[in-house]
Structures are given as C-alpha cells and as structure tokens.
C-alpha cells in the first residue's frame, strides 16, 4: 500500500506540480510550436509520452548497469542524447513497417522530439531523484501526461486568442508567450497540494 501511495504521489506530482512545460520550462519549443490546433497538440502530447516511456525504459538500465558499473557516470548526458535519438529513429522505422496507422498519426512528431530537452530532462531527473525502475517509469508517464495536459489546455487558450482582438504589437508570438506565463502561474497553485493527498 505504501509503494502504491508513493507511486500515486510521483504520478500526480509530475503531472501537476513539477509539470515539465509549465514549472520546469523544458520542452517549450513543441509547446509553442505545435499547440495551434487541438488534434496536433494531442498528437504531439501522445508522442512525447510514448517517447519518454521508451527512453526511460532504455536509459535506466544503461545508467545503472553500464555507465555507473564502469565509473562512467559523467558521460550520462551525451550518451543519453545519442541513445534516445537513435531509439526514436528505430521506433519510427518499426512503426512505419508494422503499425502504419500509428506511424501516420505520430510520424510527423516523432523526428521532432528525438533530442527534445523534456525527454532528456525526464531521463536524467529520474536518475538524480534516485527513483527505482518502477518509480522512474511512473514518473515518465506522469511527465508525458503533464506535457499532454499542458498542450491540450494551451491549444484551447490559443484558439480563444485567435478569435479575440489582440493589440497589433502583441499579435502572434508575444501574446502567446504572455498567455503561457499566465498558465504557468496558475500551475504554481498546485505546489504543496499533492504531498498532502493522503495526509
């Protein structure tokens, strides 16, 4: 029961409190770039979740059984980048061959996130936070879902902005950034809530 509780806390914590986009400011590029339309935002969010899970599943054993075991922990960042990038390419090839439908819907976004900082951030933070394998996987799932949540929420806000009258000098990216900062502020409200879920 205790482990279950801690897993739930990790999951909720990474979705709401430590949201990668809105609290840690990682993965801003796809957040601003692909959040114009809801279906694209969902596609990107699902792809990121998928890649985060895959990347964690591969980099966790890599860190503990290969890098740390040989005293090469300092090569973490560069090896992770290399491995994640090739992993994503590999998955793309497999999807194209075996699940063309999924490839068609994710295909555009997969190459975009090969070296996304949010994906790299999740894998490295899982190691620095000292999670075990199960906790790492739950944490990456939470981070992915948090990214998806941010994307979906923000695409709604952007649709609303598109329809409203914005001062000439703020049109386009400036007003988007302002809106992003408000959403980010709103997410600070979650801090302190999750830890007391089971109190």
């Amino acid at each position: 029961m205790e482990t279950f509780k801690s897993l739930i806390i990790i999951l909720m914590g990474s979705v709401l409190v430590n949201n990668y986009v809105l609290s840690r400011f990682l993965g801003i590029c796809p957040f601003l770039g692909v959040s114009k339309k809801l279906n694209q935002a969902v596609g990107m969010g699902v792809s990121v979740t998928f890649v985060m899970l895959m990347a964690t599943a591969v980099t966790y054993p890599l860190q503990y059984y290969i890098l740390d075991a040989n005293g090469l922990g300092y090569l973490q960042t560069i090896v992770f980048i290399l491995v994640i990038a090739s992993l994503v390419q590999f998955v793309e090839i497999l999807l194209k061959k075996f699940i063309p439908a999924l490839h068609k819907s994710l295909g555009v976004y997969l190459p975009l996130i090969t070296t996304n900082c949010a994906v790299l951030g999740v894998t490295i933070n899982n190691i620095t936070d000292g999670y075990n394998f199960l906790e790492s996987m739950v944490s990456s799932l939470g981070c992915g879902l948090g990214f998806l949540l941010a994307m979906v929420m923000f695409s709604g806000i952007r649709t609303y902005i598109d329809e409203s009258e914005v001062p000439e000098s703020l049109k386009g990216l400036p007003v988007t950034l302002i809106a992003a900062s408000f959403v980010s502020l709103a997410f600070f409200g979650f801090a302190g809530i999750v830890e007391n879920l089971f109190a």
Partner: peptide
C-alpha cells in the same frame, strides 16, 4: 580517450542497428 571511445562505440552500435533496421524493415 575513454570518453571518446565509449561515445564512439555507442554511436557505432546505434548506427549499425539503424542501418540493419532500415534495411530489414524497409517499406
């Protein structure tokens, strides 16, 4: 040299896997 070697080996293994994959799973 160790760092160079490790990264080179990881890169090489990854590239071999990708080449094989693109060859065998080509659409």
């Amino acid at each position: 040299l160790t760092a160079l070697l490790v990264v080179a080996v990881v890169g090489f293994i990854a590239s071999v896997i990708l080449v094989l994959a693109s060859h065998f799973f080509a659409v």
